[in-house]
Design a protein around this nucleic acid. Structure first.
Lengths: 113, 113
DNA sequence: TCTGCTACATCGGTATCCAATGTATCGATA
DNA sequence: TATCGATACATTGGATACCGATGTAGCAGA
């Protein structure tokens, strides 16, 4: 199954994707997943079992600030906001991804010309 | 540590890298690692703890054929050769990587165009 | 004899994915 | 008013696959 390959490729990218969509503004969990889906052209939709632990870890690391807010319809939401330290982490992850994908493209020969 | 990010990004890429270098000819384990290092411009050097299990799994899956041969200097070597099924697997992995990295570049906005 | 390089191999620890399951709120509808 | 579906957050167990450390072994040169 091709999905199994992707599941492995995805490792480590959730953090980068989350930080990326939060750079543009405050969002709550469910919305973060939808935003990632949009930005990736439908290619990525983080599962809840991946997203929420990632958000908790980022919050514990001080990369994100969070607060509960009521919703007019449906249950309350936890809004996340990127911190200064989170921006730094984002830059580091983005740089890491850039050099990584460059080297991969070079190695598998799909990036030539 | 930036290396921790990379360790996660690497997941799932070892198979693709191994199959890629073996497409160009028969190689033994140690040599496979060196070839990957060259092809990636020194960015990737699979650790032995990642490489050998990957080779065993690919052989068990029928993607690789293998045989022992003596060396003039040093210990014997296990040579690996890609099979027809392995070539198919390579194409699948390469395609998966291409669409994955494209979607990532799009999502993080690091301009792959 | 000791060191270093080659060469294959395995182990434990860690990180992080997915699928499944659970709790809860609210609007619509039967 | 009972049920259903969508939203929303959360945790759990199982699987995968990385790294570093460790082990075995052959051979060359100091």
């Amino acid at each position: 199954m091709a999905g199994k390959i992707r599941a492995q490729l995805l490792k480590g990218t959730t953090t980068l994707l989350v930080l990326t969509v939060l750079r543009d503004g405050e969002l709550y969990g469910y919305e973060i997943a939808q935003r990632i889906r949009e930005k990736s052209g439908g290619a990525f939709i983080p599962s809840e079992g991946a997203l929420y632990p990632a958000l908790h870890a980022l919050e514990a690391d001080g990369a994100l600030g969070a607060s509960w807010r009521e919703s007019d319809r449906g249950p309350r939401r936890r809004y996340y906001k990127i911190t200064t330290s989170g921006v730094r982490m984002l830059e580091e992850h983005a740089q890491e991804w850039a050099s990584f994908s460059l080297a991969m493209g070079q190695a598998v020969g799909s990036g030539e010309r």
